[in-house]
Design a protein around this nucleic acid. Structure first.
Length: 226
DNA sequence: ACCCAGGGTCATA
DNA sequence: TATGACCATGGG
């Protein structure tokens, strides 16, 4: 898929949903925590878990590591997979502090930071890219289920390819642009939450190439004046 | 009673 | 490389 098409899709999303102001978090640390908690989980459930952590006074990696696994799991219970995610969060916190925290990590080149994140237990490509983009402002295009679904329906030939291949195709087409990637992924999620669902199939998106995200198409009236 | 949600790991073929 | 089981809560 060419640059023009990807830009056109972005403009349509932006006009439809407006600026998203992502990531929804109060701190860089909360971005990283949220990236783990939202793994295969509705964000509404993650919000409860984040609120629970705030009430318990866990605003930092140090504070989180001071908790026992069982205690941390209890606090994040609403986000689901709480035993698994408690261990993943602590692994991420340990990695974060062992590498000098943000003060050090912010100077790492993107590829090195990504590789290091992927070595942390429980951090896969998507979670790593969430952290790279939204906590460290690196220009990476985050690929998630919504991205594959939408761009796949719009005819992107590599939407079902391996993660790195799909990501590379988008980044090389658009060029490194942190602000654009930030807004683009947020808009894809907003679109996914509203109409681009697995079932029933999105009536617009399945048109594959004519998708205008529900603004001026369904009844093809010849002259829809604003 | 289903299906789905802003994934990742591990075992298996 | 590519499936399948597993993890678990909450909303539609």
């Amino acid at each position: 898929m060419h640059k023009r098409r990807l830009q056109q899709i972005f403009r349509t999303l932006f006009k439809t949903y407006g600026p998203q102001h992502w990531w929804p978090a109060k701190s860089r640390f909360e971005v990283m925590v949220g990236a783990v908690l939202t793994q295969n989980t509705a964000w509404s459930n993650v919000e409860r878990a984040i609120a629970s952590l705030r009430e318990a006074g866990v605003p930092s990696a140090e504070a989180m590591l001071a908790l026992g696994d069982t205690e941390l799991a209890r606090l994040i219970r609403p986000s689901g997979y709480f035993n698994v995610k408690a261990k993943r969060l602590k692994a991420l916190c340990r990695w974060y502090l062992d590498h000098g925290g943000r003060r050090r990590l912010r100077h790492w080149p993107s590829a090195r930071l990504r590789e290091s994140l992927l070595s942390v237990h429980g951090i896969g490509p998507e979670t790593a890219d969430d952290i790279l983009l939204y906590a460290f402002d690196h220009p990476v295009f985050v690929i998630d289920a919504y991205t594959r679904r939408l761009l796949g329906r719009l005819g992107h030939p590599q939407a079902q390819a391996a993660y790195e291949e799909f990501r590379g195709s988008l980044e090389s087409a658009l060029g490194a642009d942190t602000g654009l990637f930030n807004e683009y992924h947020a808009l894809i999620v907003a679109h996914g939450k509203s109409v681009c669902r697995p079932r029933p199939r999105c009536e617009e998106c399945v048109l594959s190439g004519k998708c205008e995200f529900g603004s001026a198409k369904k009844p093809p009236s010849p002259r829809p004046s604003p």
